[in-house]
Write a protein that binds this DNA or RNA. Sequence first.
DNA 1: CCCTGGATTGGAACGACATTCCAATGTTGG
DNA 2: CCAACATTGGAATGTCGTTCCAATCCAGGG
Lengths: 215, 215
Amino acid sequence: MDALSRERIVAAAVAILDTAGESGLTFRALTERLATGAGAIYWHVANRNELLDAATEAVIAPVVKPVEADEPADGIRAIALGLFDAIAEHPWLATQLATQLSRSPWGSVTPRIFESIGRHVSAMGVPKAGWFTAGSALVHYILGAAGQNAANARVLGAGGDRAEFLAAASAAWERLDPEEYQFTRAVGDQVREHDDREQFLAGVDLVLAGIAASR
Amino acid sequence: MDALSRERIVAAAVAILDTAGESGLTFRALTERLATGAGAIYWHVANRNELLDAATEAVIAPVVKPVEADEPADGIRAIALGLFDAIAEHPWLATQLATQLSRSPWGSVTPRIFESIGRHVSAMGVPKAGWFTAGSALVHYILGAAGQNAANARVLGAGGDRAEFLAAASAAWERLDPEEYQFTRAVGDQVREHDDREQFLAGVDLVLAGIAASR
DNA sequence: CCCTGGATTGGAACGACATTCCAATGTTGG
DNA sequence: CCAACATTGGAATGTCGTTCCAATCCAGGG
């Protein structure tokens, strides 16, 4: 039996989260996968929340590494896509990052994301007074849109393919009152034809255009 | 004892959520406040999640009522501020809306928000192909920024005042490695001097500028 | 080499929770 | 007034996070 360590526990947590979602991360699942007892785990991590935070950090850290790019906007797009892919691959990140943002915004992971995006914002020539606004708009759009994309993918689930999902989503939308939800329904038709990644990048570019316009 | 009803249960849930947060909403707290048993509540409500959704809807519904405005942008600002205030008054909304967005995006509350914002987006003269991108950027920024604002207010808590909070936040930021977090730290200085609401609106206007630029 | 103190482990025990179940009570139409 | 049904209150169940403790491991000093 290899020595138990914080890293091994966090790795096991990520694996469980990936296959069973946030509600699947129980101490029972952990003790079984690690062939140990709950007390041993508690010696290395304070509690379940700290473990969730550590798992989030372990998965996000590689994405927010500094990126060199000719254009600052390209650096932002690269980080945005990295986050998009990470959240698509680990759907539990969406809820987790949102919760962390609105529970303890100055925790460990969120400022790192903010910083990695902000570096490029300041390089864009935005006046200092606009840094917070520009950085916030980017980060909130990126995390929100990536999370929603992951949610769509999850609804799709293991079984079906894209066509099946779109059919289900269409059905759900058709059920909406056409009068009351005319915008949402009109948008549904547009979305079906576009690639998720491209659509996400279009949103990033929209915010970037806003930053450029108010510079 | 007045007749138990779904409305009374939802109202009690909102009251509990406001004073004790999401983790405070237990069936024990509900049965005590309503002077009844768990079984009675389960006859009106399927489970805890449905109750959380109903509480969210009850609090959000008044905010997403149609708004008439001379300029579409003003309508968007009005709805954004309504959401901002609702989330500030009921901080549990931040986590709840984020969770609902990334769990079942096509539930009941989220499309209503999307629709109420989208109406004004289409009135802005955005070409149809850009509706989804523009609406998404707005909604994600609004919910994300409002949630973060509520989180800041919560850290501040019942006891202290704004100066105390800013001192605590400063202290947290000073502890960050100045080299590694130079953008975040620079931004902290800017933020201290500005009104939260104005800062929030500046972000909305930034996204609106992006929409106008790509129109 | 052993022995002693701290580090680490495994699992039992505890209290809180969401949910289910059921007997009892209210209500209503024939 | 009496059957069917709607509604209630609370006891029972199983799962969870967390705490506690006895047992084991390990390193360094005598």
